[in-house]
């Protein structure tokens, strides 16, 4: 906890901003979960339990320079990068291809479904920034389960070799769908794996956004100083479903889930800011109302967004192949006849 006078921590404004972003993340995620249940949006992965990790990380970054390589759970909590992220993600959940197109200037890579595939992408981005003398770092978010993929080991190994400005943000929420971390690794901690790559490994309480902020601030400083990457293990708990297609009661013990919910980082951080006079019920109500307005608007716009029946031919190549042009013409012909 800190005050504006404490230069080592986030400012009071940032602390309130962090809490607002966490509150918004929970609201976005919950709303999208419910909209999936109503059949209005597609399968989604709730962010519940990971908010402090994503928010603490992004508040330690410079969004105009630093790149985010998310998996599929972080988008709700990327408010530091602007409301456009949630507007695009609503489109993604609505099944619209523009949902993966974060406009130029918004340094967020599209949602990644193939676990850990984004980790070498982040290293490639960091390598490219470094080669061109551009400021900025790349942050890859991935889970305890994804850390078992070869992509993580290949990418982390090379990033350390070339001292790429990367932060590997390993979010250990205890479960890879139904597989507990004890089945994922025999290492004492995931952070320990950093030693084999020749980079620092830091374990941090992923339910404490200030602790995450401090660790990522240090990792970023190290990266931009040319000293190379850092592996951060942010420890938290998934508070419920892996995705809307999941039933966690089949594998997470009831008492463990109850304990995790009792230590929910969102009300926890609100209470913390309350206790030092940085937060009150009015600010809470305002934050909730603002988030609800954003998600209402994002979902309404996403569901109303027009989409041409042949849109999937766009953006495969810069110029379509002759065969694709024929296929597209046939689709449109059948469409006109009502037979597509």
């Amino acid at each position: 906890m800190t005050s504006a006078a404490d230069q080592r921590g986030p400012s009071d404004d940032d602390l309130r901003g962090m809490l607002r972003t966490m509150i918004a993340a929970r609201i976005y995620s919950t709303r999208c979960f419910n909209l999936q249940r109503q059949g209005r949006l597609g399968t989604m992965a709730p962010v519940d339990g990971n908010e402090a990790v994503v928010v603490g990380t992004t508040y330690a970054l410079q969004p105009e320079h630093d790149w985010i390589f998310p998996q599929y759970r972080e988008q709700y909590a990327l408010g530091r990068y602007g409301d456009e992220v949630i507007r695009r993600h609503a489109l993604y959940l609505a099944g619209h291809p523009e949902g993966s197109n974060y406009p130029a200037g918004l340094n967020v890579f599209p949602c990644q479904i193939s676990l850990a595939a984004q980790v070498p992408h982040a290293v490639g981005m960091a390598w490219g920034l470094m080669r061109q003398g551009l400021p900025g770092v790349a942050v890859a978010f991935f889970g305890d389960g994804a850390s078992s993929e070869g992509d993580f080991y290949e990418a982390a190994n090379f990033a350390a070799v070339i001292k790429a400005p990367v932060v590997f943000m390993l979010v250990n929420n205890g479960w890879a769908i139904s597989t507990p971390t004890s089945m994922q690794t025999a290492a004492a901690t995931f952070a320990d794996k950093a030693a084999a790559f020749g980079m620092p490994g830091v374990r941090v309480d992923g339910r404490d956004p200030i602790a995450v902020w401090e660790v990522v601030t240090a990792a970023r400083a190290r990266a931009v100083a040319g000293e190379g990457p850092t592996l951060v293990e942010a420890v938290t708990h998934r508070l419920g479903h892996h995705t809307t297609a999941d039933d966690p009661t089949r594998y997470i013990p009831v008492e463990q889930l109850a304990a995790a919910r009792a230590a929910d980082p969102v009300p926890g951080f609100a209470a913390q800011l309350h206790s030092v006079g940085l937060w009150d019920d009015e600010l809470q109500a305002e934050a909730e109302a603002a988030a609800n307005a954003v998600i209402d608007d994002a979902v309404d716009q996403a569901l109303a967004r027009p989409l041409a029946p042949d849109a999937f031919f766009d953006h495969v190549f810069a110029q379509p192949t002759p065969r694709m042009t024929q296929q597209r013409a046939l689709l449109l012909e059948l469409e006109a006849e009502g037979r597509s």
């Binding site: 890579f109 070498p120 982040a122 490639g124 390598w127 490219g128 920034l129 061109q132």
Partner: peptide, 9 residues
């Protein structure tokens, strides 16, 4: 995989 990030950079 790094080719993807390099291209985006």
């Amino acid at each position: 995989g790094t080719a993807v990030g390099l291209a985006a950079a």
